[in-house]
Amino acid sequence: MDQARRANHQQARPTFAELFTPKLVTVLREGYSLAHFRTDAIAGLTVAIVALPLSMAIAIASGVTPERGLYTSIVGGFIISALGGSRFQIGG
């Protein structure tokens, strides 16, 4: 019984490529519907409502202009969302 359990455990291990495949690629492979897009868009707007003023405040506290905080927040959010490793990760 113990050997069967080990064999099942080893077969269930993901490969190196599967571990580091961006979530955008895996979601598109599995099928991404319009309903999923709508819920993701609402979630993205919710994160933006919180993240954009916060990024401006952090930029001001760091001694740079608020525009730089906005640029960093927007570009960083897209990069994290596109290349992040987990579909449950919040990239805001």
Rank of each mutant, 00 (worst) to 15 (best):
A59Y: 05
F37W: 14
Q11D: 08
L83G: 05
L83I: 10
A61M: 12
V64R: 11
P22D: 11
R29H: 10
L52Y: 12
I90V: 15
L70P: 00
Q3W: 07
V47G: 04
A59S: 05
Q11L: 13
R5L: 14
T26N: 12
D2S: 12
R6I: 14
L83D: 03
A59D: 00
L52I: 14
Q89Y: 01
I49M: 11
R6Y: 09
P14M: 03
G85F: 07
A17W: 04
T15W: 10
L54Q: 02
L24Q: 04
A51T: 03
I60E: 11
A35E: 15
T26G: 11
T46A: 14
R38H: 06
T39S: 15
R38W: 13
L83P: 06
D40R: 02
L83H: 06
A43E: 08
H9C: 02
L24K: 01
A4R: 08
I80E: 01
Y71S: 07
M1A: 14
T26M: 14
G91K: 03
S33K: 09
I58E: 01
A48Q: 04
I90W: 10
F16L: 15
M1N: 03
Y32R: 04
P14W: 05
L19C: 08
Q89E: 11
A7Q: 13
T46N: 08
T26C: 07
L52S: 06
R87S: 08
R68M: 09
S73D: 07
I90G: 11
I58F: 13
R38F: 12
I80S: 07
G44T: 14
Q89P: 00
Q89H: 06
Q89C: 02
L45G: 15
R13H: 05
I49W: 10
P66E: 06
A35H: 14
R5Q: 05
V27S: 09
S33G: 15
S33V: 03
G76T: 08
L83A: 14
H9F: 06
L45E: 03
A4H: 09
A61P: 01
L34C: 04
G84N: 05
L83R: 02
S81T: 15
G91Y: 12
